[in-house]
Simulated assay, not measured.
Amino acid sequence: MSTSTLVHIPAGGVTVEGMLEIPDGAVGLVLFAHGSGSSRHSPRNNYVAGELRAAGVGTLLMDLLTPEEDRDYSRRFDIDLLTQRLLEAAGWVGSQEATKHLPLGFFGASTGAAAALEAAAALGDRTRAVVSRGGRPDLASEQALLKVSAPTLLLVGGYDDGVIDLNQLAYDQLHCEKEMVIVPGATHLFEEPGTLEAVAMRAAGWFAEHLPRKAR
């Protein structure tokens, strides 16, 4: 069983909407940072979130940009803004009775991966794990990449040539526990049969291992 709640999170003068779902006995909570042009309704991220919940991990899928902001294409690559929204969401879940005790993780896709790593760097030990799917972690600052302490998993499609190189650049700058996995036969959106399942399995395993590690 899991509880599912539509939540409204105040964030820098606007309100972002999200779906918070927490399975019974959750070992942690993962905040999803969607990529450019995506939303909390993304079927790919919702599939991954469902697999995380099946593994005992709570999820918060939210829109980091308002509909008006998202119409401005440049906002989708405003990593500072996306990071700030993610940090405000992290602060919000840290103040709620139902979620404040749960260890925190981030799952980032596309540009959301950079925001997830920036947020993880800013929060330090408060972040227990980060996973990037087809992400652009290279868009995070070098300072942030060097500062991330949370175990970080980068998942990249085997046919996503340019993005593989960009992930390798970011991977080389990370000094935390880390792993980079090339998913065979997958393009950028992991639309090929079995590839999204592989992502979800890896992500669920990563969070299940690392989120509860330092729990009291």
Rank of each mutant, 00 (worst) to 15 (best):
P103L: 11
L104A: 05
G105E: 07
G105P: 09
F106R: 01
F107E: 00
G108H: 03
G108Q: 03
A109M: 07
G112Q: 04
G112C: 07
A114Q: 06
A115Q: 08
A116N: 02
L117R: 04
L117F: 03
E118N: 05
E118Y: 04
E118T: 07
A120Q: 04
A120H: 02
A120N: 05
A122E: 11
A122T: 10
A122F: 01
A122H: 13
L123I: 11
L123R: 10
L123P: 08
G124M: 09
R126F: 07
R128T: 09
A129Q: 07
V130I: 10
V130S: 03
V131H: 01
R133M: 12
G134N: 11
G134K: 07
R136S: 08
P137A: 01
P137Y: 02
L139D: 06
L139M: 15
A140L: 08
S141N: 09
E142W: 02
Q143N: 09
Q143T: 14
Q143V: 12
A144P: 05
A144T: 06
L145A: 05
L146D: 07
L146I: 01
L146W: 13
K147A: 06
K147N: 05
K147M: 03
K147I: 00
V148G: 00
V148T: 05
V148H: 01
V148K: 00
A150M: 06
T152R: 06
L154H: 02
L155A: 09
V156Y: 00
G157Y: 06
G157Q: 12
G158I: 03
Y159K: 14
Y159H: 11
D160F: 05
D161F: 13
G162C: 07
G162H: 11
G162S: 11
G162T: 10
I164D: 06
I164L: 13
I164T: 08
D165K: 15
D165V: 14
N167D: 13
Q168N: 14
A170D: 03
Y171G: 05
Y171V: 01
Y171D: 00
Y171W: 11
D172M: 09
Q173Y: 10
H175K: 15
C176V: 01
E177R: 14
K178I: 02
K178Q: 09
E179L: 15
E179H: 11
M180I: 14
M180F: 11
M180D: 10
V181L: 15
I182M: 13
V183L: 11
V183I: 15
V183T: 08
V183S: 10
P184S: 12
G185Q: 10
A186T: 08
T187Y: 13
T187R: 15
T187P: 05
H188K: 05
L189W: 07
L189K: 09
L189M: 13
L189H: 07
L189Q: 12
F190S: 00
E191A: 13
P193L: 12
P193Y: 11
G194V: 07
G194M: 04
T195K: 12
L196S: 01
E197P: 02
M201R: 14
R202F: 02
A203S: 14
A204Y: 06
A204W: 03
G205R: 11
W206C: 06
W206E: 03
F207M: 05
